[in-house]
Write a protein that binds this DNA or RNA. Structure first.
Lengths: 147, 147
DNA sequence: TAACATTGCTTTCAAAATGATAGTAACACT
DNA sequence: AGTGTTACTATCATTTTGAAAGCAATGTTA
């Protein structure tokens, strides 16, 4: 239950955390969802050291969460855009934010709204099958047996 | 955008990450939701060094996510139980796990089921107001002005 | 009653990760 | 020719982490 990158881990939470368990990667993903794509945009937005940023972008790229795209041939320049896996990470970020809004409020707080209707969004996690809110009923973690 | 505990941060994601942005804290919370409460249970489950565990439990306790409870007077022994804020973190963990299941699958994978009905749970994040899946419509991050 | 086990830590120290600062490479612009 | 932009790399001090051992308060066993 403790090694980082080999991941024979049967726990999907641990698998996610194996490479998303640091603050910078998550903040980079937040900014990527916000629309940033370039090295210097991330660097300025986050105040991150370039060494760190290089490493984090490389890892996220290797992991298939971001991908490099050439946006200028002369001079050759690349930007980092979200892959499908990266875009699928939005609900996770939103739920992290929802928890922060509820339990770490105080002062000005960013909220999210529908880009078209302008309606504020109240994110909740539910079970798609029954529609019940996650947390409203007791759950169990199950490790499937191979019979 | 990078200091940990002062948090005048207007971004709720950054606020959450300020103290939840490390793997150990999240794995401790996972185990706490799984039912573990004692120092040695966490230590054995995670294979974490006691130094680390002490510090992480102390931080989570200070932050009001866990609280200490005396479970034996002689000898005096304490356990760590989730507070309301800690219990509210479950949807975040579940969404992290859901992403891992989708994008880091392979081999045996733990899944979650309803503890009473035994029905497997498919977690999704939706907007409670409209019922739309998070990610199905474009969203915007908004920083409120103080007029 | 002496010895060992249990639980929840603390101490120590080496190794790894991080952060700050400076520098570089490839070009464009003036 | 000199300056600016973008995306980095190199260097090195500081901080964090991890592994191992030790310890205190009690209970249990012989």
């Amino acid at each position: 239950m403790n090694d980082k990158n080999s991941c024979d881990e049967p726990c999907p939470i641990a698998r996610s955390l194996a490479f998303l368990g640091d603050t910078w990667s998550l903040l980079i993903l937040r900014d990527a969802h916000f629309g940033l794509t370039r090295f210097d945009q991330f660097r300025k937005s986050l105040g991150i050291a370039p060494t760190m940023l290089t490493r984090r972008l490389a890892t996220l790229t290797e992991e298939g969460i971001l991908e490099k795209r050439l946006y200028s041939e002369r001079p050759p320049r690349e930007e980092y855009v979200l892959t499908a896996a990266g875009r699928d990470f939005l609900p996770v970020l939103i739920m992290i934010g929802a928890w922060g809004s509820q339990h770490r409020s105080g002062g000005k707080l960013v909220y999210i709204e529908d880009a078209e209707t302008g309606q504020a969004i109240k994110p909740v996690a539910i079970d798609e099958v029954t529609g019940a809110k996650i947390g409203s009923r007791p759950i169990r973690f199950v490790l499937p047996e191979d019979d």
